[in-house]
Write a protein that binds this DNA or RNA. Structure first.
Lengths: 150, 150
DNA sequence: CAAATATATATAGCAAGCTATTTAAAAATG
DNA sequence: CATTTTTAAATAGCTTGCTATATATATTTG
């Protein structure tokens, strides 16, 4: 096979990139089904998780923690504010910064939202042993680390 | 722990759904970097793979093969036609149907695009043995199958 | 064969991601 | 201290995904 030949073995079903994309779309659809009744979505859910853990974070901190671009976070927070999930307060000493707080209504969603997410995780790993599930998470984490470096 | 308590163990970094979403975004960024110079993108690349394998498919066939919604495929094909990657021809016997064909220019992209995708797969699996890589793909495939059923 | 149903595709409208650019405030520096 | 640089957030504009609906053509059926 010369360098310019196309690998005859290459196929979607054997490419990590394709499989990952496909799996992610299926996860997103399933999670959406579970949390939409709560007024949440795949974009807002990770922000909620971060805020349930600790409120009063800045946009900058959320960007660093969740690994999305700043513009993506700015838009997501704007939708969350519009939909009554968060409020923002001015920072004491830095007028550029706002801190992000959950509304009381949003705080109530923690338990049902996490339950919905766990149900999807269970459905996705049906038939896998605990060890296989741990292996899957470990290998995914390693892929994330690899791709985060480059 | 009562049924309404929140699982104190639940965290993004231990949730398949979150990890999968994060990994998929990193893959998408990396692949985009590699194929954007070729005029391709994460949305068009899977369609190209299907058409490099066999041209003349219908939109309906592409939808079934790639597992995206019909509306998503309609929009993707419209962009691909606009960008000179595909042309569409009327079906002989059914006026509702069009068949999809690659432009000559698009046919030339197969080798470099596949190479770019493979480089990302290699980067993502750096440090993994062949067996680990096979395990990862197998577990992902099982998750896809699980989520496709429900 | 006319009416009803099914199928193939397109369109509208939204969310969530991205890059690139803008705006405003803070911090650093000549 | 005035200017430059840096930082925080917003905005513009695009793609890719979704659901829901519309449109046009086949197909089925009373």
């Amino acid at each position: 096979m010369t360098p310019t030949d196309t690998d005859p073995q290459f196929h979607r079903s054997r490419s990590e990139g394709y499989l990952v994309n496909h799996m992610a779309r299926l996860f997103a659809r399933a999670i959406q089904d579970g949390i939409k009744p709560l007024g949440l979505s795949t974009g807002t859910f990770p922000v909620m998780l971060a805020l349930w853990e600790k409120e009063g974070r800045t946009q900058r901190e959320l960007v660093a923690e969740l690994g999305v671009e700043q513009a993506t976070m700015a838009n997501t927070l704007a939708r969350m504010e519009r939909d009554g999930l968060i409020t923002r307060r001015a920072h004491d000493r830095d007028a550029r910064v706002q801190t992000v707080w959950l509304t009381e209504q949003a705080r109530q969603l923690q338990a049902p939202a996490i339950q919905a997410a766990q149900e999807v995780n269970i459905a996705a790993t049906r038939g896998m042993s605990a060890a296989e599930r741990a292996t899957l998470m470990s290998l995914i984490t390693r892929a994330i680390d690899n791709l985060s470096e480059s």
